[in-house]
Simulated assay, not measured.
Amino acid sequence: MNPRWLTWARALQAIAQNGLTYARDPFDVERYQAVREVAAEMFAYHTGEPVERLRALFEQEVGHATPKLDVRGVVFQEGRVLLVRERSDGGWTLPGGWVDIHESPRAAVEREVREESGYETRAVKLLALYDRDRHGHPPHPFHIYKLFFRCEIVGGAPASSVETDGVGFFSLERLPPLSLSRVTAAQLERFFQHEQHPDWPTDFD
Rank of each mutant, 00 (worst) to 15 (best):
L126S: 10
R87Y: 09
D133P: 02
R111F: 13
V113G: 02
W98R: 05
G96A: 04
E116V: 06
L83D: 08
Y119I: 03
G90C: 14
G136I: 00
E78Y: 11
P105Y: 00
A107L: 11
G97E: 06
P105A: 00
G79A: 07
L94M: 12
K125L: 05
A108P: 12
L126T: 07
E86H: 14
R114L: 15
E115H: 10
G91I: 00
S88N: 04
S117D: 14
K125I: 05
A123T: 00
W98N: 04
E115D: 15
V109Q: 05
W98G: 05
T93F: 04
V113A: 02
V109D: 09
V109Y: 04
W98Y: 06
L82M: 11
H102R: 15
R132K: 06
S88E: 04
L83W: 06
R114V: 11
R132I: 00
E86F: 13
V99Y: 04
L82I: 07
L126H: 10
P95D: 13
E78A: 15
L82Q: 01
K125V: 08
G79S: 04
L82H: 02
Q77W: 06
E86Q: 15
Y119G: 00
P105C: 02
V99R: 03
P95I: 01
V109G: 03
S88R: 05
E120K: 08
L126I: 15
H102T: 13
G91D: 09
L127F: 14
V113R: 01
G91F: 05
L127E: 02
A108M: 10
I101N: 12
V84H: 08
P105F: 00
I101K: 15
R132W: 01
D100T: 12
Y130G: 08
Y119R: 01
R134V: 01
D133F: 05
T93I: 04
L129V: 14
L129K: 14
S104V: 03
A123H: 01
D89R: 07
S117R: 02
R85S: 08
R134Q: 08
E120W: 06
V113E: 02
T93H: 05
H102A: 09
D100H: 14
V84E: 09
L82P: 10
V124Q: 12
G90T: 08
R85H: 11
A128V: 04
L129M: 12
L83R: 06
R114K: 12
L127M: 14
E110Y: 01
D131H: 04
H135Y: 15
E115I: 05
L129T: 07
I101R: 15
